[in-house]
Design a protein around this nucleic acid. Structure first.
Lengths: 347, 347
DNA sequence: ATTAGCACTCTTTCAGTGGGAGTGCTAACA
DNA sequence: TGTTAGCACTCCCACTGAAAGAGTGCTAAT
């Protein structure tokens, strides 16, 4: 918001110089100097003039120099400006669109497969590290819950959501319950909770557990207890990370790379970061420290949400250096997210 | 075998010098020189004598020098010798054993959970990259197979093995099959194939599919067709890789690291490599190129198999530089593998 | 067979040097 | 007043040479 305000205030020449510097730096990954720039821009300005402009931009915090006699390098603030000024709005070649469509429609069924497939696809297309987070429980609705007796004190619980997410788990029980009885339990639960959000189901189960003294009905009692256990699992969220090796290409410093790998191995924190961007329909871009944690200093995270029938389920995204090619990456992430939502509906 | 033969032939002094060099190099990661060595070994030999010995060892291919005036560095052959000569037989502190026991017994139920838990544990204990491969289908026996109707043309198939591995999948069907009918199908299949190896089941299903003209029985026909589809999934093997960031600690060269990461991302090849070591009960060690592929040049793979009731299921292991601390790592891998087998039995 | 001694080789480190790139400032110009 | 040419200045980088250090291989003495 703040950046957008400044953008309006910023004079047209400053603006085009800044954008040119960002683009050039993204392309060459070298500090860009005034001479290069004066040739690049067709404004008929000499390098000396450009130097003045650059001095202003540096003062305003958009540029910095690695050392006195080097060219300028964009700051995170500059990338923010670049992205908001439409630098991220590139066109997506039809060919890429087709690849996305085809890959997702050929994926094996089940949401898990679809998500891991999406992750590979994203990392392939962007040549960056991709991250795909599975849906949050609260947002998803029950399609089917079933219990299968494995042995005398062990039951397999499976729970399928409307978006075809499958949660399953082996649960331990003290009493030996017959399969027929389990069938009644699941029939009851399905009647009661089909198409209801899991969150609601969990809540109600919790409530009834409180009132347990009242439930003389054995069926109900077991239904509550079993579904309590079954719902316990569903807080675990999967994270699909693909294309780790691209981090090595993008970053030069070994210690930096190690830090990043460690961060990526902490999947919980990763999911949280992804969730932070879940609100809107479009693409969300977090540049450098905007990601909150120190470790993401020179990384950008481009994310977009996917949904099922207007319910936002989770997020997909890519992680790259702040100087990533936003113009190429943003449309890919955006389109892939939409295609994923589509595929979830159709499957 | 060859190395073992040489070992017998090798003179005692050569042997102890070689072992000392390997140990020293593992510890310091610096080429080791004759002076250091003559002080280290309490044989009362001068550096000059050691130099002669080292010259012999170099001639025989156990050592090499980075350059003329550097100390010696062990070759892969030397590591092989070291490992076979019992350099890998360290003691495992009771404390570590307890950690292993506790971690595995606290793991959530289901083989998948157990395996991913094992992978994290291994990488934690060894500070190396761990790899755990899920069981091969052929080796595993059926406990339970069930089909659940999700919608008119979609069925959820779940298949649990005796080792509590859960394979599950959504399969598409053309006809709408009632849940009651599906129950009969699974009852039939369970009666027929419970405790039988999946491989056998797959074979028989395949055979009957051939004879399909003969099967007038609708139940049987559907049973065959559904289980065919269900068994299709089970060739997918999971691979749990943990502790990637430790690769960065162990290797210095960026390109080398990238190559390794790429290799690790190809999970199929990884599984094959792991399988290659499945035969015996004990620990298997592949040093450098023994792994087959060029890319593993300076890596060692220490693996051990886990089993269920004398059936070898799959392998666990760690990947590290050839100069890894075998004395510490081997017992950890060994013990963890046994503990895992135990945990599978008990769960 | 072992060892002391020594010349030799090769790496590593450091200081010094010159070239190059790019800046900031000043003064002249339109 | 905004723009530009010119120039001194700064800093990095790549190269060079010298000196120090580590470790070897060989030879001759024990």
């Amino acid at each position: 918001m703040k950046a957008r305000l400044e953008a309006q205030v910023m004079d047209a020449r400053l603006r085009s110089v800044l954008l040119a510097i960002v683009e050039n730096y993204i392309e060459t990954v070298e500090p860009v100097g005034s001479r290069t720039l004066s040739k690049m821009l067709d404004l008929g300005l000499s390098s000396a003039t450009i130097r003045n402009v650059m001095a202003d931009l540096t003062e305003q915090g958009y540029l910095e120099q690695p050392h006195t006699s080097a060219g300028r390098v964009p700051t995170n603030r500059a990338y923010r400006f670049y992205v908001e000024q439409g630098g991220g709005e590139g066109l997506l070649p039809e060919e890429v669109k087709r690849v996305v469509e085809r890959t997702l429609s050929e994926s094996a069924s089940g949401l898990m497969n679809l998500l891991s497939c999406t992750s590979r696809l994203l990392s392939e297309l962007t040549q960056l590290t991709s991250v795909v987070a599975s849906p949050r429980v609260s947002k998803t609705r029950l399609r089917l819950i079933e219990f299968l007796r494995i042995s005398d004190h062990r039951i397999y619980a499976v729970l399928i959501t409307q978006s075809n997410m499958v949660y399953h788990k082996i649960i331990e029980v003290s009493e030996d319950l017959a399969q027929d009885f389990l069938n009644s339990v699941s029939r009851y639960l399905n009647e009661q909770f089909a198409r209801k959000p899991l969150e609601e189901m969990r809540q109600q189960v919790q409530d009834r557990l409180m009132d347990e003294k009242e439930t003389y009905d054995q069926l109900l009692a077991h239904a509550v207890r079993l579904s309590k256990k079954a719902l316990d699992l569903s807080d675990e969220r999967e994270v699909y990370v693909e294309g780790l090796s691209s981090i090595l290409r993008e970053f030069g410093d070994l210690n930096r790379i190690r830090e990043l790998l460690v961060l990526l191995e902490q999947k919980n924190a990763l999911v949280e970061r992804m969730d932070a961007s879940l609100q809107p329909g479009g693409v969300h871009i977090a540049i450098g420290m905007e990601n909150g944690h120190q470790g993401w200093n020179d990384c950008s995270l481009v994310t977009a949400s996917y949904s099922y029938a207007d319910n936002v389920l989770g997020a997909i995204g890519v992680i790259g250096p702040t100087r990533m090619n936003y113009r190429r990456v943003i449309p890919i992430v955006n389109y892939t997210a939409r295609a994923l939502s589509q595929a979830i509906m159709e499957q």
